[in-house]
Every structure is written in C-alpha cells, then in structure tokens.
Nucleic acid binder design. Structure first.
Lengths: 364, 364
DNA sequence: AATCATTTCGAAACCGGTTTCGGTATTGTT
DNA sequence: AACAATACCGAAACCGGTTTCGAAATGATT
C-alpha cells in the first residue's frame, strides 16, 4: 500500500503508469518474482501466481516493451523497406501486402517497422542501418532482382530474412514466390487455344527476375505449341503504363501486328490498351490483351482487363511463416514456397478476328 | 586491450557487435564518459572526444536502439494503424502515404510502426495496445470520422497524434486536411461553366466527415449559381466502385437524368463510368464524370478520368511536421493546416450535348 | 525425528545505454 | 606560492524489465 504517486485514486486508471516494481511493492514481492509469475514460470505457487495476475489486471499492468526487449535481447520487430516510389504508382500491392504482413506478424507478437528508401543512397543502406542499430530481428524483402545487393548484404551478415521473389542465390535463403512462368504458360496457352498465332509480349526490366520468368513461360508455351518465336514480338518494358504504351506502338505499327499481347503486369497492360485505342485497334476483337497482378481497377475499365491474379494476403502470411520459422531455429535448412496465379477472364481477350485455322494439335 | 571476445581479429568487422562498454574498456574510459563524448556534452575535452569519435567510427560502433530508448524514456517511434482493407482496394493512397510519412519521420530520427486493425475488435483496440505497451510516442491517423472513437480515446488519454482529416473535435487536436469543400465547389463550378444544369452527386458514407464536406461544397456552388437543388440527384455511396455503379443506375434511370456526375472519390467514379457504359451513355458527350483522389490509373482508362488531385507526399510531410512539433512541446496550442486540391482535367468531362443556354451570369 | 527432495521465493546480476553528482587535476588570479 | 575557479572525467544510479542462483520453507521418506 505504498503511495504509487501522490494524487487521487483515479490515477491508476490512466494507462501505462504502473511498473512492475509498483506491483511488486504492492504485493510484498520482488519484481523478479512478479515477472516469473506473469510469464508462467513453474517455480511460482498457484496462490501467489493468482494474486499477481489479479493485481496485474486490476491495475492494468502492461510491461514496457522497450525494457522487455532490452532484457531479452530481441526486438520482436520485422523490417520492411519500401523501394523508392515510382512517380505514378499504379498498384495497390504494397498496401495490401503491408496489411497482410502486419496482421500475420501480430499473431506472433511481432511488430512491423516500415522504412522508406530514399533514392540517393545505396539500396542496402537502410538495411545496414536497421541491422546495426539492432532495430529489427529480420526482414521482409520484396521485388527482388536477380542479383540483389540487399540479399547479398544480409546473407553475408547472417541476418534473417525472407524474400518475395527469387534471386540468383535462392538456394541460400528462404523465399516465397508466385509461379510466374507457369502463369504465363497458362495465359499463352489460353490465347493459342483461342486461335492466336502471333502473340506479342511486353516484359519488365531485365533486373527483375520475375519478369524474366514470365518471359520464359511465354516462350516455353510458344515452343510447345510449335509457334515460331518472332523476336520483334518480344518488346522490353519497364512495368509502367508509359512503357506499355511505347511497347504497344512498336508492336502494332509492324506490318504484321500481333493479334494478342501479353503484358508483364497490369500497369503495362493499361498502357498497351491506351496505345491500342489510339491506333484504332478494337479490344478484344482486333487485339487481345492480358495483364498480370489482378488489380481491382481492371474490372472497371472497358473492356475489363483479363489478368493473372494471386492472393496477396496469402503471400504475406506465408512469408511471415517462413520468417518466424527461421527466427525460431536459425539453422534449419532453407525452404521456399511457390504459389500459383490464376487467369481471371474479364473480357479483354477473345478469338482473333481472322482465325487462320492451321492444325495445331500435333506439332509436326 | 582486454579481449573483446575470444576470436580472430576480424570479429569486429561484423556489425552490431561492439558495445559502449567495449569502447570504454579499449580507451581506458568509463562508459559514461564515452556516452557523453559521443553525444556532444560540453564537459569532455576536445582531445578525448576526438579519441572516442575515432575509435567509434573505426570499430563501427552504433548504439543499441532499445537501450538508448529505455534510458531516455522515449520510443522515437510513431504508430500508424491501417484500417481494415476493403475487398477491392483501388487506391494507392495508403502506400504513397506510408512512404512519405516514413521518409519524413526518418529525417527526425523517428521510426514508423505500422499496425493493422483486424475488423473483429474495436477500432480503438490497436491504439490502446500500442499506448499501454509504450511502443510509440504518437500516432498518425487518417480517414477520420466525424465522431471518431480513436480521437476520443487519444484525447482522453492525452496522447499525441495528428489526423489526416477533420473531426467533430478538431478544435482540440492538430490536424491536416484537404479542402474538399473548396475542391467540390471548383469542380461544380467547372461543370456549370461548361453548361451543365443537372448535376448528380455520389457521396460517401455519412460517417466520413470528408465526404460530407465535399457534398457541402457541391451544394454551395449550386446555390451560388442559382441552380435548384434536386434531392434525387444526390445519391449516397460508400466510396467503392460497386457503390458508384448502384448510385449511377439510380441517377441515370431517372426520367431526366443528370448530364454530369460528381463523385466523392475515384473508385466511385469508376463504378459510375462502368454503369454509364452499360446503360449506353457516352462519356463525356452524354455524361460528364469527375472523381476525387487523382489516382494515376485514371489517366489510362477511356476516357481518362478527370479528377481532383492533391499531393500525398505533402500531406505526409505536413502531418509529420505537426506531430514533431507536438512531441517537442506538448503544451503548444493546437494548429491545423488546410491544403487545396486541384482539378486535373483529363477528358471525362465536357459540355453537355444539348446546351440549354439560360443566362446564368446573374442569379435573379 | 533426522534426512533428503521439492517447492517457492528473494537477491542480485544483467541487458546497454544515459545522466547526475562529486572529486581531481588543471588553469587562472593576485 | 597559495587559493579559487574551471575543465574534465569516474562512480554510480537509473530506465524497466528478465533470468540465474541459492537459500529458506515445506513436504516426503525411512
């Protein structure tokens, strides 16, 4: 019954004011004992444990996070570094991803620290800072490059992390990814079955591993279907709408333009559609377009954009699971998980206007 | 030169391994002295300060954040709680906002803790938890309601925060907002100048203060222009595409449909455009549509969506400034900042097909 | 009843910093 | 040269928890 603080009785109602030493003094115990009682140690009698618990809830005791973490030598925090924002952000992926990662982390008692990279400094600098100041226990990395400096740094440092996307060193770290190769095989196959024979592809930057894999899926399916690979039908892009416009112009101004265009993402597809409209191509009658990402906005445009979609929520959850496993037992072998995208038909694709009905069932 | 740790010389290369006590021992000083030297106290001689600094950089010493924060009694962290995700997020606001807030906080040495609210529990629960566990020093709140439980809780608790958006208690807390009323006056005025006389409005939920203010701006300008207020032309919405579709159907199936529709946000506008297409209205010839938010994708649809836009980056910066000011001097009077949106003409509006050329210059 | 095993808790070290206080050593003054 | 003032640094408390260790109290065993 020592005075917690000079003041009226209601003082204790205010949250965040009672410390473990207050509880201990009030109960006539030491703070060590109170701590163990609260944390379920076996060497506390049922009776005193009950006393402690009741006092704790009554007084609204919540341990001070900073102190707990310092004592336990962990931060219970995961870092997520946002890449520099594109001038025209087109995708809601990031916010959905943050949302799901944060929710999943919360189930494990972890917090999410979001840091933004400014474009002037090196890509790994934010990671280095967070590691050195010991602000996080691990990282969630997304939008990996094939040769990823962030991955190199963290591997070298022996610091836990999981990537969304594969890298050249994927055998050395946990990762989660969408099977973009299969996705684009599926989409290509779908177009071929519709009767398309000249299919264009607008890719992403060479640095994005995922974009490369999507291209690979496209090529693979062309080959399996005995369609010749036409280099001029493969256009580079940059995963933006503008890039899509330019690429579409390159494709559609050719003497024999493609009857369908596959795009490495939805932003690109929107640019392609815009350019196609301006060049007088009707979609989907004269040109089929398929994107990748499943952005919700795609359902509202005319025609609605057919796209490859996947669950961002699942991505977040799975990545958190991988990371938690790694934090608990750092020496387990690396594992990975590949999820698949599904083709969401919405209307921007259809059979080509003039179906040249070659027999394509057997290749030779 | 006592052994820092048994091991080879390279041990110190690994980051995050050297503590202040290591430095102190190496220099023959106490850790208190080292700390003061590093933090610019005046009672340290130039010579030893230099010695300490050099040793610190040489050994790559970075103070452990948790310990610093515990000792100093602050978290240097700001909390941002994400509202439950809509099933069809169409807006990139959140990710841009997080990005700018995070970057601005970083300039002040603060971190951003992102927490996601799950929809089952009370809206204030995440805030309560973060306050009680002392994980943050303040909050950034966005998407305020007129009567906002979060604001009530934090005001009652005396905990620092800034809102993006006004509330019923805006006189009691710092806030930043976009002048949605003026924005919608401008947009309405623009439509009236184009010759529109029957203008529809699709609002947001009644709980969103901002949506109410936008409606108010719409009504004000109608009144100033001597256009009669037609209740059936004001439709409620929910800030989603679906809500926009339904509202548009209600508007366009009327015997005298509006020639233009103002939407409380871009998602709504997309739904309106979709419904209009399906009902056979050409945009902008037969129906003008204007949205609010300035989403980048609006530029890629057909026709490109005219919208009211504002700088999300500025919003983030300003809010951080307000919050930092509050943290530094808690007793300063509350201040607020109102920024304005600008009308970005992209093509989804134009003069009505049949201009009834009433003289509207003078009201009476 | 003496001995041993268990249960239960207190004492104290520790996590890695910051900050206050006081004591030398040095400088300045006359 | 004696004394006061100042510069500089060490010692120790502190932030608020966790965890180890050992001792006292209790219970079980023979």
């Amino acid at each position: 019954m020592n005075d917690v603080k000079a003041g009226p009785e209601e003082e204790w109602v205010k949250s965040g004011e009672v410390r473990i030493s207050d509880l201990a003094a009030e109960l006539g115990l030491t703070k060590g004992t109170v701590s163990r009682a609260l944390n379920g140690y076996e060497d506390i009698s049922k009776k005193t444990r009950k006393r402690v618990m009741e006092a704790a809830t009554k007084r609204g005791y919540v341990p001070t996070t900073q102190a707990r973490r310092l004592a336990m030598g962990l931060t219970e925090t995961i870092g997520l570094v946002l890449p520099p924002m594109p001038s025209q952000p087109v995708n809601t992926f990031i916010s959905e991803f943050i949302h799901s990662v944060s929710a999943a982390l919360h189930l494990h008692g972890y917090d999410l620290l979001v840091h933004s990279a400014n474009s002037e400094e090196s890509e790994v600098e934010p990671y280095r800072r967070l590691v050195q100041s010991r602000k996080v226990d691990g990282f969630i990395i997304f939008r990996t490059n094939e040769k990823d400096p962030r991955v190199n740094y963290l591997l070298n440092e022996g610091f836990p992390f999981v990537t969304h996307g594969r890298t050249a060193r994927m055998a050395e770290h946990d990762w989660f990814d969408i099977d973009g190769e299969k996705a684009f095989r599926d989409a290509t196959s779908h177009l071929i079955k519709l009767g398309h024979q000249r299919i264009g592809f607008v890719g992403g930057g060479k640095e994005f591993f995922s974009a490369q894999l999507r291209l690979k899926g496209f090529r693979t399916m062309l080959e399996e279907s005995c369609l010749e690979k036409v280099p001029s039908l493969e256009q580079p892009g940059d995963l933006t709408g503008q890039g899509g416009e330019i690429a579409a112009q390159n494709l559609l101004k050719q003497t024999r333009p493609p009857t369908a265009i596959l795009c490495a993402n939805d932003a690109t597809a929107l640019g392609v559609m815009k350019a196609a409209r301006e060049l007088g191509f009707n979609i989907p009658e004269e040109l089929s377009v398929i994107g990748y990402d499943g952005i919700a906005l795609g359902a509202y445009i005319d025609p609605p954009l057919t796209t490859l979609t996947f669950s961002i929520e699942e991505s977040g959850k799975e990545m958190v699971n991988l990371l938690m496993r790694r934090l608990k037992s750092p020496d387990l072998p690396v594992i990975s998980k590949l999820a698949s995208a599904i083709l969401k038909l919405r209307g921007s694709e259809g059979p080509p206007s003039s179906i040249q009905n070659k027999n394509m069932e057997n290749c030779l």
